[in-house]
Design a protein around this nucleic acid. Structure first.
Lengths: 211, 211
DNA sequence: ATAACATTGTGAATTTTTTAACAAAATGCT
DNA sequence: AGCATTTTGTTAAAAAATTCACAATGTTAT
């Protein structure tokens, strides 16, 4: 599948493909070799048609009455989602959340690697967290260039968000994942994703309230 | 606005209302009293029409050429999103992520309160994290009933997810926010929201790859 | 006072996403 | 072999979400 076709894959499908892969890897570990669309659907709480359509969109074809070959499907999702070379990632702010992410991510995906972390706390600098070196934030631009880091995950206190974002943008970062409750602005050539737990929690609260 | 009307508010709008409130509170703190739809839009990286439509859906009306009264709008969003009584929340698993959430959330919303946390590590039990007591997981059902907890946030290692989910469901929990990479199944009367960082990160990676 | 402008609110159009419906074909049963 | 069943792949329909387009109208400038 070439880039031209990939551009037409809906955003939602991209998210689901990531989720499918996660589920497929779990299933694969149990020794299963094939899986039906309705099995994937059940795991993800969506419909089987949705799964089949997503898989259709990436041009994979299952076997009638046998379902999808898990290994092949995982590989194809890898071709869509993963980069050829390893993509280096930096975590900025190695507090509880930064450490959770660093730890959680170590060794999880072969093509995504947390290659550095940053903080201002002198006690943390020079240490390793889940095998990842922690540098002082004033080294940010230097290290990002040296280590060819293309994605930054911001987990600093929200008062620092803007400053860190600016530093990241100045270092030529390609993508930012902002876990801070402070929304930021980035130039067009930087891809931005923001997530705030409060929103998820308030959403749950709303639907709980509505029964 | 009554519950009947609230039911027709789209899910996406609910999420954005939460985000608007966050942004509005920040603006309010700077002394601003009014805000234009395009200002909110800018902060949230969406269009002004979208903002106006969302606000229209909740039945609020701005002033021509003055924009929306921030205090009034914040209050109205509160009427939509918040419960009348405080909603009690439990965090299960007080590792890095659990602590990050507990700390981040303390005192953030008056109607949402983290009232208990749980773990199995004996060193943690009996301690307080950001002012929240930590109990042993085998106390889960008891404490949830005692403290009238309606939402559970799961931040345990994914091998424990299912067990914790079952305990939560058995305790009569109303909503679950699962931060574990292991998808779970819940009965219809429990509202479930799942979030996995890997998906966000892979999405950023994909769009970085696509330029 | 008048014109130019800015901004809301909303019906209609468009786009995106999801679901329904069903033909095609492999498998197993009798 | 023939029939019922299962499951994929896909076209078409429906639903959900977003954007366009513009009337209404208050504000500012001249």
């Amino acid at each position: 599948m070439d880039k031209r076709k990939m551009r037409h894959i809906p955003h939602k499908t991209i998210e689901r493909l990531s989720q499918y892969r996660r589920a497929l890897l779990i299933c694969q570990a149990t020794g299963k070799t094939h899986i039906f669309s309705h099995e994937i659907a059940k795991i993800q709480h969506i419909t089987a048609v949705q799964v089949r359509r997503d898989i259709m969109l990436i041009g994979y074809t299952g076997t009638l009455r046998k379902g999808y070959n898990i290994t092949e499907l995982v590989n194809l999702i890898g071709i869509i989602l993963d980069t050829d070379e390893v993509l280096n990632i930096a975590v900025i702010g190695i507090g509880n959340l930064g450490r959770a992410i660093t730890k959680y991510f170590s060794g999880k995906r072969t093509k995504l690697k947390i290659s550095a972390s940053f903080d201002t706390n002198p006690d943390k600098i020079g240490k390793k967290y889940a095998g990842v070196d922690c540098f002082h934030i004033n080294q940010l631009e230097k290290i990002i260039k040296e280590k060819n880091i293309s994605i930054g995950i911001i987990t600093v206190p929200s008062s620092e968000t803007i400053e860190i974002k600016n530093k990241l943008v100045n270092s030529g970062i390609k993508g930012i994942l902002n876990y801070t409750p402070k929304p930021v602005d980035v130039p067009d050539n930087v891809y931005l994703e923001e997530y705030d737990m409060t929103t998820s929690l308030e959403k749950v609260a709303f639907f709980v309230k509505m029964h």
